[in-house]
């Protein structure tokens, strides 16, 4: 999110420990840090997202051991966000929770339309399996290294990605055209 938004400020002097550690290790890959309404968000670039998540989970000082959620946002109708992150249309959002201290962290990764592939985190958390399938199903983002990447909520022969902003609310006539065929078990 851009810096001019209300309630948004980049906390420089006394950053939380997790941010200090991330800056120490991945300084080149951290794009923005947002501390808004008591929630900490870090925007990192795609190349290092897996290493950063792995570091957050494995490093004993941080131990963000619980993956709360993985989802995505199609920012194509929010101009200021698009401009800030080099017209990357999608933003992958990971919500993490550290059980010992119960701190939460949001990690956001811009994904541009030219390269809709990101490294899967199924190797780190079992729960990522279906979550990434859902993101693939709804947004068409591919996950590199996912063991079983196929649609989860929509039928296998469905065309299009329903949560993209250019997909109309009432669909593209799938209801009328729906094939009750037996080919997908």
């Amino acid at each position: 999110m851009s810096g001019q938004q209300t309630g948004t400020e980049v906390v420089e002097p006394q950053e939380p420990m997790v941010i200090q550690q991330l800056r120490g290790k991945f300084s080149d890959h951290i794009l923005t840090v947002i501390d808004q309404r008591g929630e900490l968000s870090v925007v990192v670039d795609k190349d290092a997202s897996f290493q950063i998540l792995e570091f957050l989970k494995v490093d004993s000082n941080l131990s963000y051991d619980f993956l709360v959620d993985v989802t995505a946002i199609d920012y194509s109708q929010m101009e200021d966000v698009l401009i800030e992150y080099g017209y990357a249309r999608y933003m992958l959002v990971y919500h993490l929770n550290c059980f010992p201290t119960n701190e939460r962290l949001r990690l956001k990764v811009p994904v541009s339309e030219k390269d809709l592939t990101i490294k899967s985190v199924v190797a780190l958390w079992d729960s990522a399996n279906w979550l990434e399938r859902e993101v693939y199903d709804m947004f068409g983002i591919n996950f590199d290294g996912h063991p079983d990447l196929r649609r989860i909520l929509m039928p296998d022969n469905f065309e299009g990605f329903p949560l993209r902003k250019d997909y109309p609310l009432r669909g593209r006539g799938e209801r009328e055209k729906f094939n009750f065929g037996r080919e997908n078990v």
């Binding site: 999110m1 938004q5 309630g7 808004q36 929630e39 709360v68 919500h95």
Partner: peptide, 9 residues
């Protein structure tokens, strides 16, 4: 609501 994002559990 103001511009922003929230996760509430």
């Amino acid at each position: 609501p103001p511009v922003g994002e929230i996760y509430c559990a």
